[in-house]
Measured scan of single mutants.
Amino acid sequence: TETYETTDETEARKIAEELKRRGLTFRIERHGTTIRIESD
């Protein structure tokens, strides 16, 4: 499991693209301005 936290929408998108490219599944949670991406 890898966890990323960012407040930057663009960075979050880049992380999501990278995880997809590596064939990982992940979920995105939003907590206020923080975007949390957690891979399975």
Rank of each mutant, 00 (worst) to 15 (best):
S39I: 15
R36H: 06
A16T: 14
T33I: 10
G32Y: 02
I37V: 04
I35A: 00
E11Q: 08
D8S: 13
R36V: 09
E29Y: 15
K14Q: 12
F26I: 10
R21A: 10
E38P: 00
F26M: 04
D8C: 06
T34S: 06
E17D: 11
T7L: 06
T6E: 02
E38T: 15
T33S: 12
T10F: 11
K20M: 13
E9I: 10
I37R: 00
R21N: 09
E11I: 12
I37N: 00
R13V: 10
T10H: 13
F26L: 05
R27K: 13
T33G: 12
A12T: 01
L19A: 01
K14C: 14
L19I: 03
R13S: 09
E9W: 14
K20N: 08
D8W: 04
R30Q: 09
E18R: 08
R13P: 01
E18F: 10
E38N: 07
R27Y: 07
K14H: 10
H31I: 14
R27F: 09
T34L: 14
E18N: 10
K14T: 08
T7C: 09
I15K: 04
R13F: 12
R21C: 09
E2L: 15
R13L: 14
T25P: 07
R21K: 11
S39Q: 07
I15M: 05
E29I: 15
R27W: 11
E18Q: 09
F26Y: 11
D40Q: 13
G32I: 02
E5H: 06
E38S: 14
E2H: 13
E38K: 11
E29A: 07
T10I: 11
A12V: 05
T7N: 10
E9K: 06
D40C: 14
T3N: 06
T10A: 14
H31Y: 12
I35R: 00
D8A: 02
T7E: 13
R21E: 07
G32V: 01
E18S: 11
Y4N: 01
H31F: 12
A12R: 01
I15Y: 10
A12Q: 01
I28D: 02
E38W: 15
R13G: 07
G23M: 03
R30T: 10
T3E: 05
R36W: 07
I35F: 09
L19D: 00
R13N: 11
K14W: 10
E38Y: 15
Y4I: 04
T7M: 08
E5S: 07
E18A: 10
T34R: 07
L24T: 04
E5F: 12
T34N: 06
S39C: 15
Y4H: 03
E17M: 11
I28G: 02
T34Q: 06
E5A: 05
R30E: 04
R27I: 10
T33Y: 08
G23Q: 03
D8K: 03
K20E: 11
E5Q: 07
F26A: 05
T34W: 10
Y4F: 09
D8V: 04
R21D: 05
E11M: 09
D8E: 05
E18P: 00
S39T: 15
R36L: 07
K14D: 06
S39Y: 15
T6R: 01
G23K: 05
T33H: 09
L24P: 02
R22K: 07
I35G: 00
A16E: 07
E5M: 08
F26N: 02
K20V: 11
R22M: 06
R30G: 03
T33R: 08
A12M: 05
E11P: 00
T3H: 09
A12G: 03
G32L: 03
E38V: 15
Y4P: 00
T3C: 14
E9L: 10
E29F: 15
K14I: 10
K14P: 00
A12I: 04
E2I: 15
T25E: 09
H31K: 09
R13I: 13
E29V: 14
K14F: 09
G32S: 03
A16W: 09
E17F: 08
I15G: 00
G32Q: 03
R22T: 02
E11G: 02
G23Y: 02
T10N: 15
Y4K: 01
T25F: 08
